[in-house]
Lab assay of single mutants.
Amino acid sequence: LSQDQINEYKECFSLYDKQQRGKIKATDLMVAMRCLGASPTPGEVQRHLQTHGIDGNGELDFSTFLTIMHMQIKQE
Rank of each mutant, 00 (worst) to 15 (best):
L1G: 10
L1C: 13
S2L: 05
S2V: 06
S2P: 03
S2F: 10
Q3W: 06
Q3L: 07
D4Q: 05
D4V: 06
Q5V: 02
Q5G: 04
I6R: 11
I6Q: 13
I6N: 08
I6W: 06
I6P: 05
N7L: 10
N7K: 14
N7G: 06
N7D: 11
N7S: 14
E8A: 13
E8M: 07
Y9D: 01
Y9C: 14
K10P: 01
K10H: 14
K10I: 09
K10D: 05
K10S: 08
K10W: 07
E11I: 12
E11G: 10
E11M: 10
E11F: 07
E11H: 15
E11S: 12
E11Y: 10
C12T: 15
C12Q: 09
C12F: 12
C12D: 01
F13V: 01
F13I: 01
S14R: 08
S14F: 05
S14W: 04
L15E: 13
L15F: 14
Y16R: 03
D17G: 02
D17P: 00
D17F: 01
D17I: 01
D17R: 01
K18Q: 09
Q19W: 05
Q19N: 09
Q20I: 05
Q20F: 06
R21I: 12
R21D: 10
R21M: 08
R21Q: 09
G22Y: 02
G22D: 08
K23E: 06
K23D: 02
K23T: 13
K23N: 08
K23A: 13
I24F: 03
I24V: 07
I24D: 00
I24H: 00
I24A: 01
I24S: 00
K25I: 07
K25S: 12
K25G: 11
K25E: 13
A26Y: 03
A26E: 03
A26M: 03
A26P: 04
A26R: 03
T27Y: 11
T27I: 07
T27D: 13
D28S: 10
L29P: 00
L29Y: 01
L29A: 05
L29E: 00
M30N: 07
M30Q: 12
V31H: 11
V31F: 07
V31P: 11
V31Y: 14
V31T: 13
A32W: 01
A32I: 12
M33K: 00
M33I: 06
M33E: 01
R34P: 02
C35M: 14
C35N: 11
L36R: 04
L36M: 08
G37D: 09
G37N: 11
G37R: 09
G37A: 06
A38H: 14
A38R: 13
A38F: 14
S39R: 06
S39K: 15
S39Q: 05
S39D: 09
S39L: 05
P42L: 05
P42Q: 15
G43V: 10
G43S: 15
G43Y: 14
E44V: 07
V45F: 04
V45L: 03
R47V: 15
L49A: 03
L49N: 01
Q50I: 15
H52L: 03
I54N: 04
D55Y: 03
G56E: 03
N57W: 15
N57L: 04
N57R: 14
N57K: 13
G58A: 13
G58R: 07
G58N: 15
E59D: 01
E59Q: 12
E59W: 05
L60M: 08
L60S: 01
L60Q: 00
L60Y: 01
L60E: 00
D61M: 02
D61L: 05
D61H: 05
D61Y: 15
F62G: 01
S63F: 12
S63P: 15
S63Q: 14
F65G: 01
F65S: 04
L66R: 08
L66V: 12
L66G: 11
L66S: 09
T67A: 11
I68S: 02
I68M: 12
I68R: 00
I68Q: 02
I68T: 04
M69R: 01
M69G: 06
M69Q: 05
M71I: 03
I73T: 13
E76H: 15
E76Q: 15
